[in-house]
C-alpha cells in the first residue's frame, strides 16, 4: 500500500474506533445522569420512581414552610394545582425562594413520598417562571377544568 494511503487508513481506523467508544459512553452516561422532571401529581400518585435522582417543580404553598429552631432543616410543600408534594431539605434556600413563587427541587423520593432534596432552585428574576413549572401548572389547570366540566355534566 502507498505509505500515504496506509497512514490515512490508520488515521481513519483510529478515528472510527475513538468515535464508537465515545458515542457508546455518551449514550450510557446520558442514561445514567439524565434527571427527569416530574410534577407533584406524578410523584404523589406514585408514578415517579423512588430512590432515583429526579427533579420536581411547582409553586411553594403559602404557609407551608416549616423551619427547625436549631438547625438548617426546612420543610415545605410545592403544588402544581392538583396535588401537594412535601419537600425536605437541610441547607440554605436560594434568595428568590418564597411562598407563592415557583421552585424546583432535586433529590430522591423516599418511601413516605417525601422528596428529600439536595438542591433547591428558585427563579433568578422575579418575572421568570421555569418553563417546566409553567407547563406543569398549565397541564394541571387544564385537567382541573376538564374535571369540572365532567362534574358539571354529571349534575345535569
Amino acid at each position: 500500500m502507498h505509505p500515504l494511503r496506509k497512514q490515512r487508513l490508520q488515521l481513519v481506523i483510529l478515528l472510527v474506533a475513538a468515535a464508537a467508544l465515545v458515542i457508546g459512553l455518551v449514550v450510557y452516561m446520558l442514561r445514567e445522569n439524565g434527571n427527569f422532571f416530574y410534577t407533584p401529581a406524578q410523584i404523589v400518585s406514585g408514578e415517579a420512581p423512588q430512590s432515583t435522582f429526579l427533579r420536581a417543580g411547582g409553586m411553594v404553598v403559602d404557609g407551608s414552610v416549616l423551619r427547625s429552631d436549631d438547625s438548617l432543616w426546612v420543610q415545605f410543600k410545592i403544588t402544581d394545582g392538583v396535588e401537594m408534594l412535601t419537600v425536605e431539605h437541610t441547607g440554605i434556600l436560594p434568595d428568590l425562594f418564597a411562598e407563592g413563587e415557583a421552585a424546583i427541587a432535586s433529590g430522591k423520593v423516599d418511601e413516605n413520598l417525601v422528596l428529600q432534596a439536595t438542591q433547591i432552585l428558585a427563579k433568578h428574576d422575579e418575572k421568570y417562571t421555569p418553563p417546566e413549572v409553567a407547563d406543569a401548572m398549565n397541564a394541571a389547570y387544564k385537567a382541573k377544568q376538564e374535571d369540572k366540566k365532567e362534574q358539571a355534566g354529571s349534575y345535569k
Binding site: 455518551v26 427527569f36 422532571f37
Partner: peptide, 24 residues
Amino acid sequence: LYPLIADVLDLGKISVGPPYFNFF
C-alpha cells in the same frame, strides 16, 4: 442539546447534570 431533543421527541423533561460532563 440532549434535553432539547428529548423534549421535542416527547421522551420527558430531562436535565443533564455535571457528572456527565465531568466524566468526559
